[in-house]
């Protein structure tokens, strides 16, 4: 398959079942909602080292939030519910409770109910106040800027993490430009986040290492500087490879994001040095979810307009 001169490999991305949740952060204005949300989703690129993968899903207008203030929604994913619950509580306590004017609310009403602000109330040292409206319990915790408002619980659902594709280009700036275009397009979609810095990851990994202590190491088959000395996947003209990793609430959300992202990268085309699109997998045995690139790009129903 060739789109705009870019070869789409006949391969698939392999993804895993994860646990996911959504949190709505509001504040006096968007600036402070972003300060809180950026702190909460900081150091959350990969479950390997961070426990969770998290990112900002989108901005919310005052009409869309529970307390009629502007805000952002955050998606957070982990390999298991225990880690997600622990990380959510820690990050709420250090990033939202601390941030001036910020408040936190559930972004998923269904699913398993997990604690959002339930234990943060004890920060109030007995002065905390519970209020119930419309079947939901909120906590008002007195803090130095006024009151910190948080919903007691949010919803946790089964989600999908690790959808991905690789952009292979003739130069590093060209690979980055294509990935940036892809991220711009993918950010418009709901229910997905791209957890790496700026949505893009350059250190794709393979399973295993020559060092016994490590269970993953650099994906030498895609490292352009090793073309001559390793069993390379790269043709001579490829000088840089970057990857976009996607976590989403459902399988379909990831398919849509991959379709939109690959289409945006390919729009730059061979003329801009974009040569190939590939994807990362482990032979298909580890992950429950497979995303074949050809099938996704042939499916026009995944076009962004329907998102």
């Amino acid at each position: 398959m060739i789109i705009n001169g870019v070869t789409i490999d006949d391969t698939f991305a392999e993804a895993f079942g994860m646990r996911g949740t959504r949190i709505i952060i509001t504040a006096q204005n968007l600036k402070w909602a972003y300060h809180a949300a950026n702190a909460m989703t900081g150091f959350a690129t990969s479950v390997i080292g961070c426990g969770v993968e998290a990112g900002i899903e989108r901005e919310l207008t005052a009409e869309e939030t529970p307390d009629a203030r502007p805000g952002v929604s955050i998606l957070m994913f982990a390999m298991g519910s225990a880690v997600l619950i622990k990380q959510l509580e820690t990050r709420m306590g250090q990033c939202i409770l601390t941030c001036p004017t910020a408040a936190a609310f559930a972004g998923i009403d269904g699913g398993d109910r997990i604690n959002l602000g339930k234990n943060l109330r004890f920060f109030g040292d007995g002065f905390q106040i519970s209020k119930q409206f419309g079947g939901k319990r909120y906590w008002r915790v007195p803090v130095m800027d006024g009151e910190f408002i948080t919903e007691e619980k949010t919803g946790m659902v089964r989600a999908v993490g690790g959808g991905n594709f690789l952009v292979l280009a003739e130069s590093q700036p060209q690979a980055l430009a294509a990935c940036e275009a892809a991220i711009e397009a993918m950010k418009k979609l709901p229910n997905v986040i791209m957890p790496f810095p700026g949505g893009i990851v350059r250190s794709g990994s393979k399973v295993g290492s020559k060092y016994k202590a490590l269970f993953a190491s650099t994906n030498d088959a895609f490292c352009p500087t090793l073309k001559g000395i390793t069993n390379t996947e790269l043709s001579p003209e490829i000088e840089s490879v970057m990857e976009i990793v996607i976590d989403g609430l459902t399988d379909v959300d990831i398919r849509k994001a991959m379709h939109v992202g690959i289409a945006a990268a390919c729009a730059l085309g061979a003329a801009n040095g974009i040569k190939r699109i590939s994807a990362g997998n482990y032979g298909g045995k580890l992950g429950q979810f497979h995303f074949p690139l050809h099938e996704i790009m042939a499916d026009t129903s995944l076009n962004g307009a329907s998102a």
Binding site: P66, D67, A103, K131, F133, Y138, R140, G146, E147
Partner: peptide, 13 residues
Amino acid sequence: SHTLPFLSLMFKS
């Protein structure tokens, strides 16, 4: 005197 954000939450409900 205070501006309490929980009130807008309550009034919205």
